[in-house]
Structure formats: C-alpha cells, structure tokens
Computed example of a mutant assay.
Amino acid sequence: MELKDKIAIVTGVSKGIGLATVIALLDKGMKVAGWGRTAPDLQHDNFLFIECDVRFAESVQAAFDQTITKLGTHVSVLVNNAGLGIFGKLEDMAIEDWKLMFETNVNGIFYSSRLVIPGMKELEEGHIINICSIAGTTGVEGMSGYSGSKHAVRGISQSLYKEVREYGVKVTCIYPGSVKTNFFDNIDSVTVSDNMMRPEDIASTIVHALESHANYHHVDIEVRPLMPKGRKQKES
C-alpha cells in the first residue's frame, strides 16, 4: 500500500509501541488519529489525538466519528495496539482485573475493527494490524488471564482475515516477545533491559507489512529479541 496522505488510526498511543508506530506512520506521510486515555508528548500537523477508552463501544464510536470528521472518511489503516497485562495466578486474580484485560485486549479490537471494515471493503484496500503477544501462542505461568485474552486476539485475527481478504483488505497479527516498554512496570519477576526489543523495531515491522504489494499478505508475524539475556561471553 502507498501510505502517503492516507489515514491511519492507532490505539493506545501514550507511549511504547503505539507512540513509536504513530511516529513511523507520520514519517511516511500519513494522517494519523491516535486514540488513547492519555495524550502522548507529540506535536505534528498530521497527528490528531482523540481521548478514547477502547473498553467502551460508545467511546470508540465517538472517536471514530471525530476521526472521519476531522481527517477524512476513508480510513486505510487501523493498528489495534491498546492492551494491558496483569500478572497473577488464576485463582488469585481479581474479577475486575480479569474483566479489564478482556475488555481492553479483546473487546477493543472488536469495537474498533467493525467500524473501519465497511469503508475498507468499499475502497477494496485497507489493513488492520493487531498487536498480540508471544503469550497469544503459548500459555505463560502466572499470566493465564493475559494469555487467554491474547489467544482470543489470535483467533479473531485468523478468522477476520479470511472474512475480508477477497475484498482486498488485509489483517496481520504481530506476536512480539519482550519489548522495552512500561508493560513490565507491575511485574516484579521481569526486569526491563536493553536486551529487549525496542518499540521502534515493532513499528518498523508494521510499516514493512503495510507497504507490501497488494497481493502479498503477512498473516502472522512473530518477533523476538535475538539475545534476550545479552551476548554470550566467549570462552577464554
């Protein structure tokens, strides 16, 4: 897809992968609507921040309405990045924390995607990127809720691409390993380090998928840090 002058929506843009993706798309000449609960530290003529909580269909609808009113009616790209994880064993998980993860990580994708798909099908062009996780491909001890929500993201993505592919619309699910973001702030067992991937790395993968030939479709992309524990010391 040629990205210049086209419209993108990115959710969860306050920092991390979302913010890096916004910057990467702006660098490609796109007009970007950033949806989130907190505004990022970013000023750009082609960037529009809209306060939105993807847990709520009404909030997503309002954000979408503002996007098409201020940027244009044809949304070419949606990056479903908003998400969170809460660590804890299943029997210890608070019901509200469980709901928070599923409402954000799963329902948010449904609320956002359903609004852009009709326009993409009409244009016979469009691309939805869902940011999943390695936890969406395998179970992780102490993260049953998060892993369950990300398995749902995987299933939604793999079903949705089959629903829209014949209309020229792509759906790509990206499964990152550890990324140096604030995701790990409340997980005591993980220490953020420079051995993790950078948010910019994920953003570059998103751009690569978006710019691919119209008949070339990245369905699943798994990315991991090459040396998560650092470079192995040579034996003397």
Rank of each mutant, 00 (worst) to 15 (best):
S178G: 10
S112D: 01
F87H: 10
K234E: 14
D188Q: 11
F49K: 06
Q233G: 07
G142I: 01
K15C: 10
S76Y: 10
K162F: 12
A33K: 01
N107G: 05
K15Q: 15
K234T: 12
K70H: 06
M120N: 10
I50P: 14
T73D: 15
F56W: 06
E235T: 09
G145D: 02
I86H: 02
S204L: 07
E2N: 14
G139K: 11
G177D: 15
A209T: 11
Y216K: 15
D188P: 09
V79P: 00
E125M: 07
V169M: 03
L78N: 01
A135T: 04
T67G: 10
D65V: 07
S157P: 04
A62R: 14
H217F: 15
T69S: 13
I134P: 09
Q66P: 12
K99P: 03
I202E: 01
D27A: 12
D65I: 08
E163A: 11
S112F: 13
E124I: 15
S236L: 08
Q61I: 12
N80I: 08
R224P: 06
N186G: 07
T181L: 04
S236C: 12
Y167I: 01
E235G: 11
M120Q: 08
I134Y: 09
K180G: 02
E51A: 08
P118L: 10
G139L: 11
F56L: 04
Q158M: 09
Y161I: 10
M196Y: 13
T73M: 05
A33L: 04
G12D: 01
G155K: 08
V22K: 03
G72T: 10
L3F: 07
V106S: 06
P176G: 13
Y111W: 15
D201Y: 10
C132T: 03
A24W: 00
Q158T: 14
L210H: 00
T181D: 01
H151M: 08
I134D: 11
D220H: 14
L90W: 11
I221H: 12
T137Q: 12
I7R: 00
F184A: 04
H151V: 09
S149H: 13
F87V: 15
R165G: 14
Y161W: 12
V116E: 01
V164P: 05
G139Y: 15
G29V: 07
G12H: 02
A152T: 00
G148I: 04
A82F: 05
G168R: 01
L26S: 14
G148F: 08
M1I: 10
D92W: 07
E124G: 08
A214M: 15
I109T: 15
L25K: 04
L25A: 08
R114E: 15
I221F: 15
E166D: 14
S149T: 09
L71K: 01
L42K: 02
V169Q: 02
L100P: 00
H127L: 03
I50H: 14
G119T: 04
R198W: 11
G85A: 07
F110K: 00
A24M: 00
K121A: 05
A39Y: 10
N107F: 15
K4Y: 12
H151Y: 08
D97K: 02
I128K: 01
T191N: 11
M93L: 09
T38D: 15
I9N: 00
I17E: 05
E211Y: 06
L3E: 05
I129K: 06
